[in-house]
Design a protein around this nucleic acid. Sequence first.
DNA 1: CGTGTCTGCCC
DNA 2: ATTCTGC
DNA 3: GCAGAATGGGCAGACACG
Length: 583
Amino acid sequence: MLARPAPLTIRGVYSTLRKIALEKGSGSGARRQGLVLSLLRSAREEETRFIVRMLVQNLRVGANWRSVIGALGRAAALHHAKDGLPTKKQLEIAEAATVEAFHLCPSLDVLVPVLLETGPSELGSVCTLRPGVPVKPMLAKAAEGITDALSAMGTTGGAVLGEYKYDGQRAQIHVTNERKVSIFSRNGENRTDSFPDVAEVILEASVGGATSFIVDAELVAIDRANGNRLKAFQELSTRARGAVTSAEITVEVAIFVFDILIADGQPVIEKTLRERRKILQQALPLLAPGRIELARCLEVNTQAKANISVGQIPAIDNRASVQPKDETAEAVLQEFLLTSFADGAEGLMLKQLDAGGYQPSKRSESWLKVKRDYCEGLRDSLDLVPIGGWHGNGRKAKWLSPFLLAAWDPVNEEFQSVCRVMSGFTDQFYAEATERLGRRHRIDGPKPYYVTGECCSVWFEPAEVWEIRGADLTISPVHKAARGHLHPEKGVSMRFPRFIRVRDDKRPQDASTPEVIVDLFNRQTRKVDTRGAPAAQALGNLNSSSGAAQEDLVEDGAEDDGESAFEDDSDSEPGDEACGQET
DNA sequence: CGTGTCTGCCC
DNA sequence: ATTCTGC
DNA sequence: GCAGAATGGGCAGACACG
């Protein structure tokens, strides 16, 4: 027997991880394997699990950044305790202060020296908002509709701002006193180099306004040649990720600003939204349609029918920005919501105007988002057939997850995949579905009439129908629903799919069809332009698009009659080897 | 050098 | 992003 | 009510491999 390897040390593991990360070039795969193997050979007991999880996925072992930062604060408090151990209360204060400091100034380079040298008590004076260091952005909670949102805002209610929720990419834009611009993503990534156009525009817009500032905004792909129509998120995401020059930019964006955190060096996050909006306007006096605008918005009074005069909240154009007299806030916002859809936005944000400040990193009740797919009566769903799945990981290891869902094409008599789904299932449902589909309806390989770019590790017979809801439909290189209708090979898929319920009343041949899917796709206001695609034969409605005044549609429920005879032919294929193997 | 696969980041 | 579960 | 976990579509870019 060989000698047991030396135990792992933190330094040793760290250095091996670095080696793995830096390894590249021909044969790097094998060398990486060797390094992983050496780690695992030295691991003892629980260490194996930590190492494996660290390597396969972001160390999901019950400790995220927030917990680690909090623990760091506690450790610092212990380290600096003067007389005896700190009380539980003192530790909690240290933790909260550290987490708070990290939200305002999420930089370990700033945080750790302060903790080491002086302890958590001094964090407040050092870890402050500062242009150049990204702040954790404030987030919103989902509301199931205008009514729901207004009641969630509760009695503090009064003035509420309804604001377009644009379907783009969050951007926190910083300008320093030296007029140096930095642009951060929602996750605090520095994206400055991929948005030189945004940097230019923000500098121009702030001439005569604030010198240094931090504003919160959404960047949206825009069609300048076509009345500044908003484009789909999918278009935005084709922009280069790395450094580009303005001349190389292929997808133009508009900046929709909606908040401000610092103006001329002064933090304004403690001020109310109404005040911040005013400051925002002053900071950016030179707005330009299609390039930089204030997020379109509308102020309402929730206490009663509007009979007060409001109107300090600016809209970018001459649309009414104020609730008309004699209409309820609810009715006005409901209409505004529909207008936002027609304009190509995702829905509305509802924000309390006169209560509370900007709360970095909080998913607060004072910001609520209302999207089409949250709203009863506005949302669409598809009825799809589970045709395969994979073995789950972590807490879902004993079940199948995700599942692959397909639409039924009665013309070609095939099931065409639409999306994977892993959200919306209860644990109990997983257990039952794993048993039902993974055992009783399991087959050795995909049926010849299954069409998908996916390779499931487990395949089922078409046995049942599930209602699946999503935000909108996309053009997919992987999924094949309605292929040939909008694009020669690409199919249609769904953004943010989740399971709603089993449709006991439907058989697989009653599932949603290409016809339904193409129709839903074409009725979307924002969608990827497929017209350039060669030979998209289009069912004569390729050009319907735009406008969408008559938005409202509820698919689901009584659909077509799906008469096509889909027989369970007996030739169940053996497994197909073309598929890569599962994990 | 071209293709296929994986990663990391948006939502 | 969305959702469910456990504290 | 919050934290944590498990994963959705889809893109560009990095990389390995032939």
